[in-house]
Computed example of a mutant assay.
Amino acid sequence: MNNKTYTVSEAKKKLEYYCAYQERCHKEVTDKLKSLGMIAIAIDEIIYHLIKHNYLNEERFAKSFARGKFNHKHWGKIRIKRELKFRKISEYNIRTALKEISEEDYIKKIYLISEKKIEALQQKTKQEQQKKIFNYLQYRGWENHLIYEVINNLFD
């Protein structure tokens, strides 16, 4: 636990830097303020300040999160949606965020990561490769029908 106490204005400054460094969601900001020992009234005031001054924007966070996880972690839409829900992002913002990923890029990405995975599994049997690829893609939140389509196309 943090022993230092903060005034509301000190906490505002600290959280402005926290939000300016990287996009944050309300849940992360609230958790951070609680870890700083702030009370509920102060938390509400600080969050209001951050939203008013555009440090905190849930739609912007969701879009950035979806693009980042798709491009860098190669997550599918199921995983991205689950992680955004965990962060208490609204359904509207989740739908908006998923629109950031074009259908064309989505299909290209699943084939690209599947082909890379096949290369890494050359010494395995066809069945083992298919099972490993299925598990790999499913864990990363890709839709089952897409996974089956990719496996069928790559192994036929």
Rank of each mutant, 00 (worst) to 15 (best):
F61D: 02
N144E: 09
R95D: 14
S102W: 08
Q130S: 12
R60D: 06
A66G: 01
L121V: 05
G37C: 04
K73L: 13
I43P: 02
F134K: 05
V29W: 00
R140Y: 06
Q129E: 07
K69G: 01
Q22C: 09
E103G: 12
I107D: 06
I51E: 14
E28L: 08
N2L: 07
Y106Q: 05
F65N: 02
K73E: 10
W75V: 04
Q138W: 06
K52V: 10
Y6P: 01
I118G: 01
K13C: 09
L137H: 00
K34H: 15
K34A: 07
Y55C: 02
Y55T: 03
Y111M: 07
K124C: 11
L33E: 01
H145Y: 11
Q129A: 03
H53M: 12
L84S: 01
K108R: 15
L56F: 06
Y18D: 04
N2V: 10
R95N: 14
Y48Q: 13
N57H: 06
D156L: 11
I107T: 13
E83K: 11
E103W: 06
K109Y: 02
M1N: 13
I101K: 00
Y18P: 02
V29M: 06
L154G: 03
E23W: 07
Y48P: 02
N144A: 12
N71D: 14
I110V: 14
I80L: 06
N153Q: 11
Q127V: 13
N153A: 11
T5D: 07
F61I: 06
T5V: 15
R60G: 03
Q122M: 13
I80S: 00
I47D: 02
R79Y: 08
E10N: 09
A120F: 08
A62W: 00
K69Y: 09
T96R: 10
T5R: 09
A62P: 01
F86Y: 14
K132S: 15
S102L: 07
L112D: 12
Y106T: 09
F134D: 04
H74K: 15
D156H: 09
S114E: 03
I43F: 04
R24H: 03
D44T: 13
K63V: 14
C19A: 06
Q138S: 14
N54V: 05
H74E: 10
E91C: 08
S102C: 12
H145K: 12
Y6E: 03
R67C: 05
I41Y: 09
